[in-house]
Design a protein around this nucleic acid. Structure first.
Lengths: 239, 239
DNA sequence: CTCATGATTTGAATCTTGTTCAAAATAGCG
DNA sequence: CGCTATTTTGAACAAGATTCAAATCATGAG
């Protein structure tokens, strides 16, 4: 039935609209002010209609995260497909998430909130699953870079697994985001330029893995230049 | 006035009671079920009385975190005062937080939730400040270990700062906690035994810093033995 | 001991916001 | 053009955070 298909499309479009407006509202007034009635209002629909798409507010938040994740994956993809040695691509991969979060500060806020037990467990199974699937390419890309490193002979895993290496970077990035976003925390502990420090610590971790070519972190200027070049080469003009 | 002092003490005691019962309720029924009326009820006080201590639910959560932080600091302190080379103490420091969180799974849940923008910004300035001050010893201990490393000649900072080194460990630990607590995430990405991987990655980071004596992470069994010994030596019997 | 006064406590009332569902509107179809 | 099924609506409901007027209690003077 073509009418059925049209209907399907209309519903999908409306869901997009809801998600986009929600994103707008969050950007505008913050997560704190977000409420279901306001979202429905902003889209000129009744609250009930909103609930035909999302089982709960939590569900909507996870869906929003999923929708916006494609954009995040674009950054990862760009880092992974950089024409550079695997070690640089691995570093770029971590930098990709910093670049993304810096351009989308509210994304991390929502992610942090949505992945909280209270919110996460209140979202529907399907939405959570959809989020994980949306993130899957990121995992695959990361593991791909590690295998490239092994294949090219730059990296010897020994007893480690590719997942372990990826987890190392991932946890540094997630942890740094978390600390950066906890207002007042890093200032209190006298940490300046956390992302710059993060970059150097990632270099150290990769050095510690023996991933060739090793990178000299003692020279602050060199680190600086490296980061600059990477950012312009990989995340340069587009978007 | 002695009566005034007694009153003061009584109020402080009541605040303790509120915090303890809240903690109990969270452990029992989870953060999701927590509500102000129930807390007041469980303590045989009216809701209004609860609000004389805490400006809001968020305020109470941050206060709870602060109260329980002393216990967390105990773990850090034990690691920092371990009779071992600075590098081992640094490693133990990170392990301390894992040991603490494993024994207090709900602490991290609350911390994660409370440090979310939504909750954190809804707590009062004073409570947030108090939390940061409660955490201060942890920062000082960490920096102390780094300086010990430098003083003993095991570590050369070069252009790095002690804060940067501490941030590296801190972000790995926080990041790993976060990933571990996001239900289903690590399973989905096929990561097994995240804390074990975290330990090895921390060794690699410290190796990458050139912090002597370097630790060979290629031998999985050696890592295992090291972690075992550390746990029993440092967090052995007590508590 | 008694009463006046101020501080504290109480819990019902209020307000906000997420969620539901009966009624109204709409669409599809013979 | 009706008839029926589906969708949309938004007022009603529920849950829980927060407030505040009234009640209670503590203190101290007379």
């Amino acid at each position: 039935m073509s009418t059925k298909e049209r209907r399907q499309r209309e519903i999908a479009e409306r869901e997009q609209l809801f998600l986009e407006k929600t994103h707008e509202l969050v950007c505008q007034d913050g997560l704190l002010q977000l409420n279901m009635a306001r979202i429905a209002d902003a889209c000129d629909y009744a609250t009930g209609t909103l609930y035909q798409h999302f089982a709960s507010k939590e569900d909507l938040l996870v869906a929003l995260l999923t929708a916006r994740s494609e954009e995040r994956i674009v950054f990862f993809r760009r880092a992974a497909s950089w024409n550079a040695p695997p070690r640089d691509r691995m570093f770029a991969f971590a930098a990709a998430d910093v670049a993304f979060v810096e351009r989308n500060p509210q994304y991390f806020r929502i992610a942090q909130f949505a992945q909280t037990e209270v919110v996460w467990s209140a979202a529907s199974q399907e939405r959570r699953q959809a989020f994980l699937h949306a993130m899957q390419p990121a995992g695959e890309l990361a593991l791909g870079i590690v295998s490239d490193g092994v294949r090219s002979g730059d990296l010897e895993l020994g007893d480690a697994t590719a997942e372990e290496v990826a987890l190392g970077l991932w946890s540094i990035v997630v942890g740094t985001h978390t600390l950066v976003h906890a207002a007042g925390l890093l200032e209190f502990f006298n940490v300046k330029e956390p992302y710059r420090s993060m970059g150097r610590n990632i270099h150290r971790l990769l050095n510690g893995l023996g991933w060739q070519p090793l990178f000299e972190t003692c020279d602050g200027n060199a680190c600086e230049r490296y980061a600059k070049r990477l950012m312009s080469d990989v995340f340069g003009e587009t978007t």
